[in-house]
Computed example of a mutant assay.
Amino acid sequence: MTPAETWTPVETTEIRPGYRISRVLKGGWQLAGGHAEIDREKAITEMGDYIRSGITTFDCADIYTGVEQMIGDFRRATIATGDVSLLAPLKVHTKCVPDLQKLATLTRAELQETIDRSLLRLGLDQLNLVQFHWWDTDVRRYVEVAGWLSEFQKEGKIDLLGTTNFNTACMQEMTDAGVNFASMQVQYSLLDNRPEKTLLPFCKEKDIKILCYGTVAGGFLSDRWFGVPEPAHPLENRSLTKYKLIIDDMGGWDMFQALLSTLRRVADRHGVQVADVAMRAALAFPQVSGIIVGVRHGGHLEAHARLFGLELTATDHAEIKAILDQKTPLEGDVYDLERDQKGRHGRIMHYNLNEEKPAA
Rank of each mutant, 00 (worst) to 15 (best):
D249N: 10
H35Q: 11
I51R: 00
G298L: 10
D138I: 00
R76H: 06
T57I: 05
K342R: 10
I208P: 00
Y243S: 08
S289N: 02
K206A: 03
F74S: 02
Y335D: 07
S85W: 04
L191W: 05
Y243F: 15
E151K: 03
D49E: 08
E205K: 04
P3R: 13
V179Y: 01
F152M: 07
A360C: 13
W135H: 15
E37I: 14
F285Q: 03
G299L: 11
K206P: 00
T6L: 14
W135C: 04
A360S: 15
R23E: 08
Y50V: 03
V143L: 02
W148T: 06
E355R: 07
F74L: 07
N180V: 05
T6G: 08
E151T: 13
M255P: 00
L301K: 04
P358W: 09
T78A: 07
E173Q: 04
A360G: 15
T6Y: 13
H133R: 12
L111D: 02
R265C: 05
T81K: 14
A182E: 03
G294K: 02
R108A: 15
I292K: 03
N128I: 02
T241W: 06
A281C: 10
D83M: 15
A61M: 02
K342E: 09
G332M: 10
F256E: 03
K91P: 01
V272T: 15
S239H: 13
W225C: 03
R224F: 10
A32V: 10
G343N: 02
E230V: 15
Y335I: 00
E5S: 15
D249K: 14
P231W: 14
G72F: 02
K26T: 07
A4G: 05
Y351C: 05
P229I: 10
V266L: 10
Y64H: 09
I63S: 07
G82E: 14
T12C: 09
S289P: 01
E14Q: 13
H345F: 13
V186S: 05
L90Q: 08
A258C: 12
L25P: 00
V186M: 10
A80Q: 12
K342D: 06
K197A: 07
N167H: 10
K95S: 04
P234H: 09
R296G: 14
Y213T: 09
D223P: 01
Y188L: 08
P286Y: 02
T313A: 09
L330H: 03
A32R: 01
Q126E: 03
M279H: 08
K357A: 14
Q112A: 09
T215Q: 05
R347N: 09
V84I: 11
A36W: 14
Y142V: 02
H93N: 08
F181I: 02
V272G: 10
L129D: 01
A314C: 00
E37D: 15
L120I: 08
E302S: 11
A177W: 01
V145T: 14
I79H: 09
L260A: 11
M349S: 15
P17I: 04
Y351W: 15
V84L: 09
P231N: 13
E356W: 08
Q273A: 10
F202M: 05
I348Y: 12
S222D: 12
A61T: 06
V84Y: 05
L235T: 14
T163P: 00
L310D: 01
G346N: 06
L330D: 01
L127M: 08
K91D: 01
H304P: 00
A88T: 13
I320W: 03
A146Q: 04
